[in-house]
């Protein structure tokens, strides 16, 4: 279990949140022009990193707003949370 610091509401229990996978995946601007390979990459392929990972969460049982989390998938440690559109925080030094 982890405590997630919702950038809109503050620190809350994980059970209040829903999780929505890797962040910063951009939908191709014009889907009609991309080929199957590129579309497949967009829909199905994920970095699935063991280490620091940027992902999207939503405060489902709270303010219901979306934000991004920088979390280490090897330890579940959360470095920071940030609102959509904010500059991407750099990766913490691994200790």
């Amino acid at each position: 279990m982890f405590i997630i610091d919702c950038p809109w509401c503050g620190a809350r229990d994980q059970s209040e949140f829903s999780t929505h996978g890797e962040a910063h995946i951009v939908r191709p601007e014009d889907p009609e022009t991309v080929d199957d390979t590129e579309w497949g990459q967009y829909v199905f392929y994920r970095n699935n990193v063991k280490g620091w990972y940027r992902e999207r969460w939503m405060h489902a049982f709270g303010c219901r707003r979306w934000f991004n989390v920088l979390r280490n998938t090897a330890s579940d440690a959360i470095a920071t949370t940030y609102v959509p559109g904010a500059p991407r925080p750099s990766l913490p030094e691994d200790t």
Binding site: G21, Q41, F44, Y45, R46, N47, N48, V49, K50, T73
Partner: peptide, 18 residues
Amino acid sequence: GHSSVLAEMAGFKMPLES
């Protein structure tokens, strides 16, 4: 669960989440 980690070593991605 570590398939993506090994795929990254080989230079490609897999359509997986662990």
